[in-house]
């Protein structure tokens, strides 16, 4: 059955959609009250963020727009040293979308929320003219468990830990679009366990960032700029799977500029680097973590290549499109 304008009119069809799909999957005592707003119990300082998700295709190897919508916001909260607790979910649905598709997406969001330990406590649905597209906004709240974590807090000598392999999400999407067969899956995942592990191990984390659009090179440039420092990384230490490397070679892409959806960097004092690395590796989704470089004097981001040459990495300009030249 397809969505039409009456599903967004606030009447019976809207109510049915909410009950039969959203309440069914997101079920919790706060949401179920269906009040105009969620009333929440929060302790101390909070981290608060929002993000919108417009990916196509809606379903791809390793994930879907729903899972992305939960993990993306959960991860942004975690990066501030906060434990995520509550999300909202707003849906903008174009006429013609299948109800079964929305049901699948909502189920995926439920599973992702459970894994991340969050509840979806408020939501909204709008229907617009169109051709079946689905767009999701999520906002989220988390309780700060470790304060002082900031992109402007990196210090000379700090070690940079990357939680796992680069480029997987972008590679999964490109493989589908360009019809190249492989087993690459999006790495869409919540980073809660890694962050909890670092905090519980008493690591003096200076900064954490998830590696999303623009890739690792863009994130490192943001750090360099905000902390007024230099960043030096080693190509030989970058975890990149063979399959992603192969895909990049075929399409002329660069993994340093490709999006992940379940990877992060943690910048920690050098004295705690090994302890932090083990904490990350013990955690779910952090098994392939590596120390990839350090914070140095100066400015900008430099990579020492496998040939021991020096390559300056700028931010991503434009879109990372496949090349033949």
């Amino acid at each position: 059955m397809k969505i039409n304008m009456s599903h967004g009119s606030g009447g019976k069809q809207t109510g049915d959609l909410i009950n039969q799909i959203f309440l069914k999957h997101f079920d919790n005592h706060i949401l179920n009250k269906l009040e105009d707003a969620a009333v929440l119990d929060i302790k101390g300082k909070i981290a608060y963020t929002t993000d919108s998700f417009v990916v196509t295709p809606l379903f791809f190897s390793g994930g879907d727009i729903g899972k992305l919508a939960v993990c993306g916001t959960v991860n942004d909260i975690c990066m501030m040293g906060a434990i995520p607790k509550y999300l909202t979910a707003g849906f903008i649905i174009e006429e013609g979308a299948e109800i079964e598709t929305i049901d699948k997406i909502a189920l995926s969001m439920k599973l992702a929320a459970e894994e991340a330990g969050v509840k979806i406590v408020a939501g909204d649905t709008k229907v617009i003219e169109g051709r079946g597209g689905i767009y999701i906004n999520t906002s989220g709240i988390g309780e700060i468990a470790k304060s002082g974590i900031s992109i402007s807090n990196c210090q000379k000598g700090d070690a940079i830990i990357l939680s796992g392999s680069l480029g997987d999400h972008h590679a999964a999407i490109m493989s589908e679009r360009m019809e190249i067969e492989n087993n690459i899956k999006s790495d869409c995942a919540p980073l809660v366990s890694i962050v909890k592990s670092l905090i519980e191990s008493n690591i003096e984390v200076h900064c954490m960032r998830d590696v999303t659009r623009g890739g690792l090179a863009t994130v490192l440039n943001e750090i360099s700029s905000a902390s007024s420092c230099g960043v030096e990384i080693y190509e030989a230490f970058l975890p990149i799977s063979d399959e992603v490397r192969g895909l990049c070679n075929i399409l002329g892409l660069d993994p340093l500029y490709m999006a992940n959806e379940g990877k992060m960097i943690a910048v920690v004092p050098e004295s705690q680097a090994e302890t932090a690395l083990h904490a990350v590796r013990r955690s779910k989704y952090g098994e392939n973590a590596q120390i990839i470089g350090r914070i140095v004097d100066g400015s900008g981001v430099t990579m020492i290549t496998t040939l021991q040459g020096s390559r300056i990495l700028d931010v991503l300009y434009g879109e990372g499109l496949p090349r033949i030249c």
């Binding site: 019809e179 067969e181 492989n182 690459i184 063979d242 399959e243 192969g246 895909l247 075929i250």
Partner: peptide, 8 residues
Amino acid sequence: YILGNICE
């Protein structure tokens, strides 16, 4: 076969 990818 290219590093785990199959290309037509």
